[in-house]
Amino acid sequence: MTASPPRPGERLLAGYVGLVLLFLALPVLIVIPLAFSTDASLIFPPRGFSLKWFANILERPEFASAFRVSATVAVVATSISLVVGTLAALAFVRYRFPGRDTLLLVFMTPLIFPAIVLAAALALVLSPLGLLRSIAGLVCAHVVLTLPYMLRTAIATLSEIDRSLEEAAQTLGANRWRTFRHVTLPLLRPGLLAGITFSLIISFDEFTVSMFLVGPGLMTLPLEMYNYSEFTLDPTLAAISTILLGLTTIAIVVIEKLVGLGRQFS
């Protein structure tokens, strides 16, 4: 069955798959040549070669400060999600309790809940608390948004851990905490690292919810890029995109090496 030469149908399918992959990759990769263009607008094909758009990023302090805000929010929100998500995953995988399935569904809701509604609703409750236009407010929102990703990875990883290893540790006299610390946690580490990478990306790229929570003086990078695009569509944005693509590629390689990207979605 495996050794048979490809039939015409299979070749046709492979060709079609190639076209779809091109459709998926083209809008992403096309920003790279434009980042080095000498033209002041996004003209294809790009003419000449210059690094002036990268220099332009450095000349505009708002991009650097937006990058700092996005990175800070991503790291803090991911750290909180990591702890909260891992604890919840332990409950979902190791225990059967009434309302378990419903609760899991509720925890996963932010994945498909209309982002615009959640955005406005969070702004509504964060505003009287004085958390609008604050890092803390953004962190609150991003914990809700990244928790499902962290939870899903942690559940997938935990379900695959051989429980007899933990039982062995307990038989040998380790208490619950020592068992968790020295047996469960090391086994969980690759899965959790993948979840962390994923959560960092989700938070860093988040747009709609942040839109309601930022303001003058506090911008995330995607919103700063959007604001810039409202007035100028020059290759500066392509240059920033190229840098972000570099960072994303590193993240993809990290996840792929740790657990395999496919596991994140099955």
């Binding site: 992403v28 096309i30 995607p222 569509l233 995109s241 496919g262």
Partner: peptide
């Protein structure tokens, strides 16, 4: 598999800029 999943991890703004470059009047 990688080709299907990787675009999910690319910033939505980057992808919108990509489409602007493809569909624009001088795209």
């Amino acid at each position: 598999f990688l080709g299907v999943i990787a675009p999910l991890m690319v910033s939505i703004i980057v992808r919108m800029i990509g489409w602007t470059i493809i569909l624009g009047n001088e795209g």
